[in-house]
Design a protein around this nucleic acid. Structure first.
Length: 389
DNA sequence: TGCGACACAAAAGT
DNA sequence: CACTTTTGTGTCGC
């Protein structure tokens, strides 16, 4: 019999909160006027409506002339840190007319992080949701078949990349280049040590959590949206405000059909499908990453039930180096394997069915402290749960 | 201090 | 509103 001490604790107290200007870059999604006005978001029908992430979007305010949304004061902060680009960026994406394509990966940790004591904080055992969409910034005039009626303000009316042929320029070891046609685009999410870049495993659960298998997040197809050369001028909506392909509601059929997902049915998910996994699954053991080969490609992909496999080192230890992890979103161009021979200089992953995934670009969060034990283990420390260095 | 397993109970979904 | 499912986290034994 559990005692009262075992009862679910109240959310960690959040003292009167004001956004320090130093951390404003951590809130790009919620600073976006578009996201705060988007009906899908303002009606709390964004992804992960199942939890506190929706209640994260409760209160609006005004700062520096921009409308923004921040969590209600009674809860710990659960909004997303910003993702930023990491050099180098390879290879170059282009249109058939050789027009270069500027790529923006739009990512958010839409669930599972708190901002406490001026740092992002996660608990190893708690779920993260990571949402990604991709924008290709191309002037319509550069497209072979311009559609002037499309509006960048209305995601659903955006034309898609489907009818355009993209290619990438691959650098070869002999110093020459080769142009390869892109079959489709895909994204995945990984994690790494903030300092040395060493990989940190992420794992993904089914809704059965401990009773189900775990695996690394898949490489999921995505359909980038097009921006008419206005990327710099127009803030991009939070990915959650668009139709989302939720990965994975239940990533293998278990005791119910995958289509019977638990997500709120008021989520716009016109492009959602159940992912198709080709690798066999061995419960009780981790699985390697696989490739989501579903044909109907979503503009927004959400990786749900993600956890860090391990915690950061030296959490709360004084006079030790506090390890920090970061979450990385990666965009791949899928090309035919026969187009890639050994001379290609690029990060590549082998997929199924003769596909090879060439990394186009990646974005990453700043450092995230990952605690390995329950919040209660840290609550009696200085800062009411927040580690003070 | 972290990890895996087990467990309870609140939140969220139906 | 009742029931079920999902998920945060307390506890235990290493």
């Amino acid at each position: 019999m559990m005692t009262t001490s075992a009862q679910r604790p109240q959310p960690l107290p959040t003292p009167s909160y004001s956004i320090p200007s130093a951390i404003l870059p951590s809130f790009p999604s919620y600073l976006s006027p578009l996201s705060s006005l988007h009906p899908a978001l303002s009606s709390s029908s964004s992804l992960s409506s199942s939890s506190s992430s929706s209640s994260c979007l409760q209160t609006t305010g005004l700062l520096s002339g921009l409308q923004f949304i921040f969590p209600r004061a009674s809860r710990p902060l659960l909004c997303t840190p910003s993702f930023s680009g990491l050099p180098p960026i390879l290879p170059q994406l282009q249109l058939p007319n050789l027009h270069a394509v500027r790529v923006q990966i739009n990512a958010a940790v839409s669930r599972g992080l708190r901002f406490e004591s001026a740092r992002w904080l996660a608990y190893r055992r708690n779920y993260l949701s990571i949402t990604i969409n991709v924008v290709f910034d191309i002037p319509l005039s550069a497209l072979p078949t311009p559609q002037p009626s499309s509006s960048p303000l209305l995601p659903r009316s955006r034309q898609t990349v489907d009818n355009h042929n993209f290619s990438i320029v691959l650098d070869l070891r002999n110093g020459t280049q080769r142009v390869v046609k892109v079959k489709f685009f895909a994204v995945t999410v990984v994690a790494e040590d903030e300092v040395n870049g060493r990989p940190v495993d992420l794992i993904q659960h089914t809704s059965k959590r401990d009773q189900g298998p775990r695996r690394k997040p898949v490489v999921a197809r995505i359909r980038p949206t097009l921006s008419d050369g206005r990327l710099a001028a127009t803030p991009i909506s939070h990915p959650a405000s668009l139709g989302t392909h939720r990965l994975l509601e239940d990533f293998i059929p278990m005791d119910r059909p995958a289509s019977a997902g638990s997500s709120s049915n008021n989520i716009p998910r016109g492009s959602s499908t159940s992912p198709d996994f080709t690798t066999s699954l061995d419960s009780e053991h981790e699985q390697p990453p696989s490739f989501d080969s579903h044909h109907e490609t979503a503009e927004v992909v959400c990786f749900e039930r993600i956890q860090f496999k391990r915690a950061t080192a030296n959490n709360g230890r004084k006079n030790t180096a506090q390890q920090m992890f970061r979450v990385v979103a990666i965009l791949y161009a899928a090309v035919d394997e026969t187009e890639c021979f050994d001379g290609v200089v690029s990060n590549a992953e082998h997929g199924a069915n003769g596909i090879r995934y060439l990394e186009i670009q990646r974005v990453a969060t700043g450092g995230i402290m990952v605690r390995g034990r329950s919040p209660g283990h840290y609550a009696d420390r200085v800062g009411g749960g927040g580690m003070i260095q």
